[in-house]
Write a protein that binds this DNA or RNA. Structure first.
Lengths: 226, 226
DNA sequence: GGTGCATTTACAACAAATTTACAAGTTCAC
DNA sequence: GTGAACTTGTAAATTTGTTGTAAATGCACC
């Protein structure tokens, strides 16, 4: 899955750092801004996929940042970070075009859940594109390109590749793959998986003989590395 | 890896049964509840690792179940099952602390993918990693690293090492090891164990001649020290 | 303590068995 | 018919059990 850029606009350096580390661990790309106007600039220039905005900011307030962005037709989803004593005004949030809010201090699980939810519902077409190596998968168009040239894949190949990408870095047994990709009613031979893997490698590996993405785990199954 | 318990709270008995069979097949342990209040009780008493909650439930609604659980500081991840006509209100989902949602009718693949994704997110990734000395075993990736460099192991070596780690500090006879790691039917020579121990030592002991982790108990068997 | 002897274990090399890669063939559905 | 998908034969790669031998250990006895 393509890495999402998330811009944190908050004057609390410690919070920015904590959240950044968290986001990085979850495969997001954190960006930071310490005050409203740099936040506004970076939101325009770096084109993040999501904004985390503190309402109380020195100088240009978070409210102002959001309003200005929306006035500039920036539709990037926004999650507002508000202090508990602020008594969040939901009408205000709507006005400034926020998508959600989290009350500080917040738990990491909560923040991540909200980030994921917002990203999912924001119909950012980038969210529907995943990459690995020189391969790009557009799930909306159901098209796979390699070096910007379309590569034709059969439905089975497409499903298998997507399953690999959705479960990257995990060892996947042939049985698990069959269950997940083919469904549990229908049971082709486990060697069928091998056959499809061969074809995927031929289409997407630089050197199919030395695969770098679809690895075999001898005696167990396969493992996909982006 | 401990089996994940998944509690299905839904009034549709057929759906519960179908999903249960599916989950069992995938090595999960399904639990069921037909209405909101039993669901709530079981969520507390059985301590499942994941909840599948239908929003429309007789009596106590799914929404209410989630809210009450969160109010009771239950952080078990929740996947909401919603009927297509419900027009999922995503803000509501966030409010009740849901981690994801699936629209009925759903495909088995989709449901499983989401279950796995949520479990992966909520589980402490460190929990899947064990260590001894400078060696790190990641059971999810099925990869062993030493000083952060991957060390390739064969299935037999991997199984044997894991058995040692799971039974550390105990004296293990060769017969016990054969039974546990190889199984009851198949009986290779007891010296086979020695051969594999030699290979493990060569890969993971600082000085294979003076092993500090896989110790031999002369005349009896082996003992593993982390 | 030291010595000699019987066991037990370590290790390397090898052959057998298993597993995977790949290609070609067959079946099935549209 | 055409293309996709499953099956299957076979070669190649990998793993694994076995075994011969050297080294280590335990032990009885001096």
């Amino acid at each position: 899955m393509a890495q999402h850029k998330i811009l944190i606009i908050d004057d609390d350096a410690e919070l920015r750092e904590t959240v950044s580390i968290l986001l990085e661990r979850e495969q997001f790309q954190p960006l930071q801004a310490a005050d409203g106007s740099t936040g506004f600039d970076k939101a325009l220039s770096l084109k993040p996929n999501l904004l985390l905005v503190d309402l109380r900011l020195p100088g240009m307030s978070g409210i102002e940042v959001c309003k200005q962005l929306r006035a500039n037709r920036v539709t990037t989803p926004i999650i507002v970070l508000s202090a508990i004593e602020d008594e969040v005004d939901k009408v205000l949030l709507l006005e400034i075009g926020a998508d959600d809010y989290v009350v500080k201090p917040f738990g990491t699980r909560e923040l991540l859940a909200r980030i994921r939810a917002v990203l999912r519902r924001s119909s950012d077409p980038e969210a529907l594109v995943s990459r690995f190596g020189d391969v790009e998968v557009n799930t909306e168009r159901r098209i796979i390109t390699r070096n910007n040239k379309e590569v034709k894949v059969t439905p089975a190949e497409y499903n298998l590749l997507l399953f690999f990408m959705q479960n990257s870095d995990r060892v996947l047994t042939r049985d698990l793959i069959l269950n997940s990709v083919w469904g549990y009613e229908f049971y082709p031979n486990t060697r069928t998986v091998d056959a499809h893997v061969v074809r995927l490698r031929q289409k997407f590996e630089q050197d199919p003989v030395i695969p770098r993405h679809i690895l075999t785990v001898h005696g167990v199954g396969y493992r996909f590395l982006p």
